[in-house]
C-alpha cells in the first residue's frame, strides 16, 4: 500500500458519485470509499505514475491493482 499521508493532512474530496466518498492530498494520495461495488473515474493530476490498492475495510486486507498512468 502506498504510504498514506498523515491523516490530518487529508482533505475530503467532493463531487463524487452517490455512495462514494474520498479523502486525499490530490496528486499524492487518494483514498476512496465505496458503499457498494462499482466503478469510479478520476483525473489523476501530475506527470507521475500512480499505484493502486483495493482495501477490504472489514478484513483490512489489501490487494494490489494495476498501476496507472497520470491523467
Amino acid at each position: 500500500m502506498a504510504e498514506a499521508s498523515p491523516f490530518e493532512a487529508l482533505v475530503p474530496l467532493h463531487d463524487l458519485p452517490p455512495g462514494v466518498s474520498g479523502l486525499g492530498r490530490p496528486g499524492e494520495y487518494h483514498l476512496y470509499h465505496f458503499q457498494q461495488s462499482g466503478t469510479l473515474s478520476v483525473v489523476l493530476p501530475g506527470e507521475q505514475p500512480y499505484g493502486a490498492d483495493a482495501i477490504d475495510t472489514w478484513n483490512m486486507s489489501t490487494t494490489p491493482l494495476e498501476d496507472m498512468g497520470p491523467g
Partner: peptide
C-alpha cells in the same frame, strides 16, 4: 459489528 465499522468509515471519509 460491520455496520458499526461502516459508520466509522463513512464519518471519517467525510472529514
Amino acid at each position: 459489528a460491520p455496520e458499526m465499522a461502516r459508520c466509522f468509515w463513512l464519518g471519517t471519509m467525510g472529514g
